[in-house]
C-alpha cells in the first residue's frame, strides 16, 4: 500500500498517476453506460463492439508501420471500427429479429481476426496482449483528455435526456407509442458505448471492458431504487474497484486490468450469494400460498 503511494508521488513515475486518473475517469463511464447497458440488456452487443475494436487497432498499426498513413494512432482505427460495428449491430438488431445473435457473433469474431491478420503483417513485433488485457504503461495524457471529454459528454447527455433514456430502457414499445424516436436513442447509445469502449480498453483491455460495463452496474442493481441511483452507485463501485485493483496490482506486481476485474467480479458474486441466501430465508419463513393470479405473474 505504502509502496503504491510512494510511486504515486514519485515525479519519475508519471504513469502511476496517469493510471489512477484513467481509473477514476473510466469509472464515470463504467457507472453510467454500464447501467444503461445492463438495464437494456445489451451487454452482448457491447461485447461484440469491444472485440471488433481489435480489427481497427491492427489496421491502424499496419497502416502506420508501413508508412501508408504514418503516425496514425491505433485509437483512430479503433474508433472507426467501433462505430462501424455499432452501426451494423444496431441496424441488424432493429431490423432483423432472426439471426441477430449470429450476426453479432460474426462481427465479434471477424473484427478480432482482422486485427490478428493485420498485426501478423505489421513490420516488427506487435504484441496484441496489451490491447486485449490493457496496459497502464500505455496510457497517455491524450487518452486521459479524451476520457475526460467523453465523461462530460455522457454526463450531459444523461442530464438532458434522462426521461427518454428511462422510458426506452423500461418499455421501448410504450416509449415508441408516446412518439419517442426509440431507434435514434438506441443507435446513439450504441455509438457512444462504442467510442467509450475504445477509450476504456486502455485501462482494462478489450476483453475485460465488458466485465467492467456489467459487474459494477450489476452490483449497484442489488440496492439501487432507480436508474439514476444505479448510475451513481455503479460509478462509486467502479472507482473503488479501479483504485483497489491498481493498488493491489502495483503491490503484488500483477496486471492491473485483470486485478480490477477480479475484484469487481468477486464483489458481484458475493452480493449475488447473499441475495440468494436472503431470498431463501424469506421463502422458508413465509407460508408457500400465493394467489393463483400472482403465481405466474
Amino acid at each position: 500500500m505504502i509502496a503504491f503511494f510512494e510511486a504515486l508521488f514519485n515525479p519519475s513515475m508519471p504513469f502511476v498517476r496517469n493510471a489512477l486518473v484513467a481509473g477514476l475517469l473510466s469509472s464515470v463511464l463504467f457507472g453510467i453506460l454500464g447501467t444503461v447497458v445492463t438495464v437494456k440488456r445489451i451487454a452482448g452487443l457491447a461485447g461484440a463492439i469491444s472485440h471488433a475494436v481489435l480489427g481497427g487497432i491492427g489496421m491502424a498499426l499496419y497502416l502506420s508501420a508501413t508508412n501508408i498513413l504514418p503516425n496514425l494512432p491505433p485509437i483512430a482505427g479503433a474508433i472507426v471500427f467501433a462505430v462501424l460495428a455499432a452501426l451494423i449491430i444496431g441496424i441488424v438488431s432493429m431490423k432483423a429479429r432472426q439471426r441477430e445473435d449470429t450476426v453479432i457473433n460474426a462481427i465479434w469474431a471477424i473484427g478480432m481476426s482482422i486485427g490478428v491478420l493485420f498485426m501478423a503483417k505489421t513490420p516488427g513485433y506487435t504484441d496484441p496482449s496489451s490491447y486485449l488485457f490493457g496496459n497502464i504503461l500505455l496510457i497517455s495524457t491524450r487518452d486521459l483528455a479524451l476520457l475526460g471529454i467523453l465523461d462530460v459528454v455522457v454526463v450531459l447527455l444523461v442530464w438532458r435526456f434522462y426521461p427518454q433514456l428511462e422510458a426506452t430502457s423500461f418499455d421501448n414499445e410504450f416509449a415508441q407509442v408516446k412518439g419517442l424516436s426509440t431507434n435514434a436513442v438506441f443507435l446513439i447509445l450504441l455509438i457512444v458505448t462504442a467510442i467509450a469502449v475504445v477509450l476504456l480498453q486502455t485501462f482494462v483491455g478489450i476483453v475485460m471492458v465488458i466485465a467492467m460495463l456489467t459487474l459494477p452496474a450489476g452490483t449497484a442493481g442489488f440496492s439501487a431504487k432507480n436508474m439514476i441511483g444505479m448510475m451513481v452507485l455503479a460509478w462509486l463501485y467502479s472507482s473503488l474497484f479501479s483504485v483497489g485493483g491498481l493498488v493491489a496490482g502495483w503491490n503484488f506486481d500483477l496486471p492491473v486490468g485483470a486485478m480490477v476485474v477480479v475484484l469487481a467480479g468477486a464483489v458481484f458474486l458475493s452480493f449475488s450469494f447473499f441475495r440468494l441466501l436472503k431470498t431463501r430465508r424469506k421463502k422458508s419463513l413465509q407460508p408457500p400460498e400465493q394467489s393463483p393470479g400472482e403465481a405466474n405473474a
Binding site: 410504450f174 416509449a175 408516446k178 424516436s181 439501487a224 432507480n226
Partner: peptide
C-alpha cells in the same frame, strides 16, 4: 429493473 411505481406512472407524461 430498478424503478418505483410513481416513476413508471410518470412515464405516461413523457414528451419526445
Amino acid at each position: 429493473f430498478p424503478i418505483s411505481v410513481e416513476e413508471v406512472v410518470r412515464m405516461g407524461r413523457i414528451r419526445p
